[in-house]
C-alpha cells in the first residue's frame, strides 16, 4: 500500500524534499512512518504531525492512501 509523506518548513530543508511516496507492507504509526521515510534522519525530539490534514499524535495509525505531514514547532514572533 502507498502513502504520501509531506515535509513542511525547516523539515523540508532538512530532508531535501517536500513530498515522497512510501510503500508500506503493514500499517505503521506516524513515528514509524518517519523512520521508514527518513532512515538517515533520527526522529526529531519535537515534531508536529498531521494525518489526512488532522493534527495527531505519534501513535496514530497510518493506512493505505493516507497523507502524512510532518512540520516543526514554531514559536518565534
Amino acid at each position: 500500500m502507498t502513502i504520501t509523506v509531506k515535509f513542511f518548513a525547516s523539515l523540508r530543508e532538512q530532508i531535501g524534499t517536500n513530498q515522497l511516496k512510501l510503500t508500506l507492507h503493514t500499517p505503521l504509526t506516524m513515528e514509524q512512518v518517519w523512520t521508514s521515510a527518513c532512515p538517515n534522519t533520527p526522529l526529531p525530539e519535537y515534531l508536529l504531525m498531521a494525518l489526512n490534514k488532522e493534527y495527531v499524535q505519534a501513535d496514530a495509525i497510518v493506512k493505505e492512501g493516507d497523507e502524512v505531514a510532518f512540520f516543526p514547532p514554531v514559536t518565534g514572533g
Binding site: F8, A9, S10, F71, V74, G77
Partner: peptide
C-alpha cells in the same frame, strides 16, 4: 496565537 520563524508561519 501566532508564530513565525525563518519561512514558516503558524
Amino acid at each position: 496565537s501566532g508564530a513565525a520563524l525563518r519561512f514558516a508561519g503558524q
